[in-house]
Simulated assay, not measured.
Amino acid sequence: MPGITRRGIIAAGAGTLALPGLARAQAAQQLAIATGTTGGVYYPLGGALANYLSRDIPGMSATVEVTGGSVANLQLLGANRVGMVITQVDAAVDAVRGNDRFRGRPVPVRAIAVLYTNRMQVVTVASTGIRSMADLKGKRISTGAPGSATEVMAFRLIEGAGLDRDKDFRARERLSPAESTNAIKDGKLDAYFFVSGVPTSAITDLGATPGVQLVMIDHDEFVPRITEKYGPVYFPEVIPAGTYPGQTTPNRQMSVANVVAVREDMPAPLVTRINEVMWGHREDWARVHSAARDFKLEGQKSAAAGIPWHPAAEAFWKGQGATL
């Protein structure tokens, strides 16, 4: 993302802020927050967070980066090209351990807050005849944008359902949710995977399209098989009927938590101040997107975070009364 370099974005982990004493910062300091695609939830939440930080921390200028999602975010964090990310826990665990896309390149990522649950959504329309994961065989699907945690989770679900991602589909695209919705509308795609908070704009758009009957594929039955191999980062949940236009039945699906994360070397006073700002604006954040309603004290658990806490964040949440 050359735009980051051109604007001189400084990863906060580099220690460039005038600390201690943020109020005495000599010049504006910039912090890039890596989010996701514009059709998801990370982007609007990240944009609001950037505004809060820029307004409430003297000398801070926070900006948002549009990315493919969690994997790309963590790769940028590992390269010290952004200072903060929103990410799914499964991708963060891979990054810390140097697994999968991070093989040989572990990322020193640390959690500072647990946000909300991300839901795996397998999306299609009634005209395709798809009603189950097995029905996807031989169809044209999208498994998410390159560099997204959607892609990682989609591959694991496909595997858990007994399908081969390279052999069992007529075509497998790597589209964003907005692109996937448009492709279904145009008759060029049969189904797509997308992991996000709910509701998300791209699926709402598809469900509200005249002449289209939205169908959400159940897949919670495969969670035990997936967690047996990849660890207890996933859990079954239900998206209630009516969450999306035309969604007439509950969707039983697989979920994963989201965290806000930074590098382990971000200065402790800055981590504390960021958490103070986030927590202080939690009601404002929930008005930006309903997913932020789940940003709660009881959600600040080490098991939910999945990766180690930044020490300053751990101290902050304990000070708020969380039992990590």
Rank of each mutant, 00 (worst) to 15 (best):
R7K: 09
G8K: 15
L17I: 03
L17Q: 10
L17P: 02
G21T: 09
G21D: 12
L22Q: 12
L22M: 15
I33T: 01
I33E: 02
G36T: 02
G39P: 12
A48C: 06
N51I: 04
N51A: 12
Y52H: 10
S54A: 10
R55K: 06
R55T: 06
D56E: 09
G59M: 13
M60W: 06
V64R: 08
T67I: 03
G68I: 03
N73I: 00
L74F: 05
M84V: 09
M84W: 13
M84D: 05
V85M: 03
V89P: 09
D90I: 04
A91L: 01
N99T: 06
F102Q: 07
R103K: 09
R105W: 02
P106F: 12
V107A: 11
V109T: 12
R110Y: 03
A111E: 06
I112A: 07
Y116E: 04
Y116D: 04
N118C: 08
N118R: 11
V122K: 09
M133P: 00
A134W: 00
G144F: 14
A145V: 15
P146A: 10
S148D: 15
S148L: 12
S148Y: 08
L157D: 11
I158D: 03
G160K: 04
G162V: 07
D168H: 01
A171N: 06
R172C: 05
R174M: 15
R174K: 13
A178C: 11
N182A: 13
A183S: 08
A183R: 04
K188H: 05
A191L: 03
A191E: 01
F194K: 10
S196D: 14
L206M: 12
G207F: 03
P210T: 04
Q213R: 10
H219N: 13
D220V: 09
V223N: 15
P224C: 07
V233W: 11
V233N: 09
G242N: 13
T243I: 15
T243A: 14
P245V: 03
Q247N: 07
Q247A: 07
T249S: 14
T249V: 02
Q253G: 09
S255H: 07
V259S: 04
E264A: 12
M266I: 11
A268W: 03
P269R: 10
T272E: 07
I274A: 09
I274H: 04
M278Y: 04
H281W: 11
D284V: 08
H289A: 04
S290W: 04
S290L: 01
A291R: 05
A291G: 02
Q300H: 11
S302V: 06
A304Y: 11
A304T: 01
P311Q: 11
A312D: 01
E314V: 00
W317M: 07
G319C: 05
T323M: 14
L324Y: 10
